[in-house]
Design a protein around this nucleic acid. Structure first.
Lengths: 337, 337
DNA sequence: ATGAAAGCGCTAACAT
DNA sequence: ATGTTAGCGCTTTCAT
């Protein structure tokens, strides 16, 4: 059986190639009865248009790329990206979009990959996640006129983005700890080359300021979103007599909890912990984690929808979405106010 | 700036389109000096061949698809698939392969997706993971002459696959528990619609038989690779007086551990636990998990290499790879023999 | 409303 | 060794 083409469908339906094309693309000018007939043949043969040919003829390819601008090792230590991918594919499938994944494992690979992404004519648009604050990719994308959406906010007014309210979420979390009477509240940050981490840190700082608390920079320890980094950071904070720690992700909160358990520190009695994400680890930790819920899957879905909107309508000015976050109080913070 | 094509490069280099094509594709018959010149222009302009056009002209598109034949929800609860994806992309990047991801979220989506995958002419080949034992995809792939590799073994002699030695790994794990003197060894299975789960169960059964132990079917509880399912399964096993449980994945072992902790059962003193995977959760659990290590990333890498081999050389007869597994003894089994 | 024909960027015979 | 030419399957004017 030779491959099905427009031509073969046309022949079977007794019409011309163009007519079949019109039917496939839902053009208006085709008689209902003819359309019916063509549709029947397509149904029956299981014909699918060739995306390569389509793309070449100047149409959409119905392929979007997801670039995760973060070395793959750290990437999947956290359920964040898997969850995001879930949201993205969930939005892709009903739209008949195919998702291409661009990951790299070393800086060198990154350097090789970017030009390929920029000049790869194959996909219709791009979603960029895990982006660093100084990432040159965005400006290159703009220069090359490639439609894209970033996951995480971006300064440039031309950039369409979807983000969650990292700043407000952190602010709420830290304010909660203050209200509960905690005096020395530490913070374990994520990678500070990342907008979200900076925003979460700012939320922490602002919450303290807003309540008239002095900032003690030694109470801020850097992590990198791995469990292990937070484990170590927590060990350092232990020496500084904190009675609460706001941790920039759930996975890291687990690391902090592990350090505390080993040090025989009672949570929340001696030290309260609040995480960020509300991913499965949060419910399963011992004790269950108080954390800031962010709608990750929703971010993925909106990223796809926004990209599609750009493709269809140009979308000027840029769409900038910040989704609300929510404090989920469980047991590691020691109180519901 | 108009899009770069073969033609424009040809003009800039003062040669014909075909020559540029030959250079790009590393054909022999082109003078070193000309090749040099063309290469320089390509380098300087950042030209990248259009994959769609390439594909259409009958060449490779350098795109491979990854189908995860498992609803996406359960999929990313476990670090298994992310790790596999890491391996796959790690092998794809140096080969200039782009990876397309096919996931579905409902049975209905699955039904819609399969025909699309089968007739999507865009990719050169497919990697199939998370496949169910009765999955019709494999036979359809064969019928449609689509090159593919499965992650997980398959009966059909035509199928190229990469798998880990689930049976031997489980056998070793259970034998270890027997040697340590455990008398009532239970098993929490994965989805039994999955070859790997069945193999792990068989390894468990065979280990008992080989040591002359009677099989008690009530000591086998079904899980589905989620933490929660194992949590519940462990609760059921608790009523049955087991003194050890072999759990089909690390994530599930975490669930079992949680159930035991809540029931105030001492691990490993009262009940020993052995998991499967040796993914990060295993080291981080309390106590650290004894488990069967399988080289997941390596599986991904080999899957890509095998697919490429099929594409290049046809690969007859089919390549069937079973990678060894290894028991990693930590603290939940209570002894090193 | 439908068909004919050109062309998207590329590869691969076929010439030279 | 290099240039010329004919498609690959599709969309899209342009005719009719």
């Amino acid at each position: 059986m030779t491959r099905l083409t427009l031509e073969s469908i046309a022949e079977l339906a007794g019409v011309s190639r163009s007519t079949v094309s019109r039917v496939v693309n839902n053009h208006v000018s085709v008689r209902p009865e003819v359309r019916e007939r063509v549709l029947a043949v397509i149904e029956q043969t299981g014909y699918q248009p060739d995306p390569a040919a389509r793309r070449l003829a100047g149409q959409r390819a119905n392929i979007i790329g997801l670039v995760i601008a973060e070395p793959a090792q750290s990437l999947f230590a956290d359920p964040y990206f898997p969850r995001l991918i879930q949201g993205i594919t969930q939005a892709c499938n009903p739209q008949d979009l195919t998702l291409s994944l661009f990951l790299f494992h070393t800086k060198e690979e990154e350097a090789n990959l970017y030009p390929k992404i920029l000049h790869n004519n194959l996909f219709d648009g791009l979603i960029i996640a895990g982006m660093h604050v100084d990432d040159p990719l965005v400006s290159q994308l703009i220069e090359n006129d490639i439609p894209f959406v970033t996951v995480g906010r971006h300064e440039s007014p031309k950039v369409n983005y979807i983000d969650t309210d990292n700043m407000a979420g952190s602010h709420t979390a830290v304010t909660h700890l203050i209200r509960l009477g905690r005096q020395r509240i530490g913070h374990i940050t994520g990678h500070l080359n990342n907008r979200a981490s900076l925003d979460r840190q700012d939320g922490y700082l602002n919450a303290l300021r807003d309540r008239g608390r002095a900032i003690d920079p030694t109470l801020i320890e850097r992590g990198d979103y791995t469990e292990a980094s937070a484990y170590e950071a927590m060990h350092r904070l232990l020496a500084k007599n904190v009675d609460a720690v706001f941790v920039a992700s759930d996975s890291m909160a687990l690391g902090a909890l592990r350090a505390l358990r080993e040090a025989n520190v009672k949570v929340p009695d001696d030290i309260a912990i609040v995480g960020f994400d509300d991913l499965p680890p949060a419910t399963l930790s011992v004790p269950p984690l108080t954390t800031v819920r962010q709608p990750i899957r929703r971010v993925g879905i909106l990223a796809v929808e926004t990209l599609l909107d750009i493709l269809d309508n140009g979308l000027e000015p840029a769409r900038r979405v910040i989704l609300p976050t929510e404090l989920v109080v469980r047991e590691t913070c020691g109180g519901r106010i």
